[in-house]
Design a protein around this nucleic acid. Sequence first.
DNA 1: GTCCAGGGCCTAC
DNA 2: GTAGGCCATGGA
Length: 223
Amino acid sequence: MSDRPTIAWLHAALQGAYGLQDAWWPAESPLEVCVGAILVQNTTWQQVTRAIANLKAAGALDPHAILALPPEAIEDLVRPSGTFRQKTRRLEIFSRHIITRWDGNLDAMFAQDGTALRVELLGIWGIGEETADAITLFAACRPTFIVDAYTTRIVRRLGLVVEGETRHDIRRLFTDALPHDAGIMRAMHALLVTHARTHCRAMPLCTGCPLADRCDYWKEHAA
DNA sequence: GTCCAGGGCCTAC
DNA sequence: GTAGGCCATGGA
């Protein structure tokens, strides 16, 4: 029975393979982070990029503008990102929350404690744990760990979690192992995304994966 | 034509 | 508390 890899090992292995990652999120403003986090639900960044370009071109990357336009107009703008009726509703509800609760001032909303912010975000319809964590970490710059499909796939294939363990177990695994620091959380997330996009894809079997010798999925399928 | 992509809500058990 | 259905586009 081989020893189970640790988060420290994973972090070192990914950093060794991909180098230091910029603490990135592809957005030009905190609001764009929020909109992107909602639009990327169950789709790819390629699609989100199109939708955000549409919103910008229409002058609709703004809470007041989103509420001023008819829903059908927003639906047309965000259509490339899929589930466009749901996402239009989510953008409207998020915009209304910022305006009514914070007078449209995102900076004020993000000035509060990270834990309180996360709880507030989770109370907004259409924002679940992953979206709340993405906004908390990349828009408000507060430390929290994002468990997304990439993270889940990577830790499952490496045997860091076993069958039956949930996203909460995965989140605890990382938060227990990493310093409570936004920069480190961002860098870890960036490394996971980079690795998933480069090698750890759903199908087909990857080639040249730097973690292949510890990957249960690779061992199973390469045979 | 089929599967998949950086989810979240609702319903049924 | 959790498994399954639903939303919907575009690329491989």
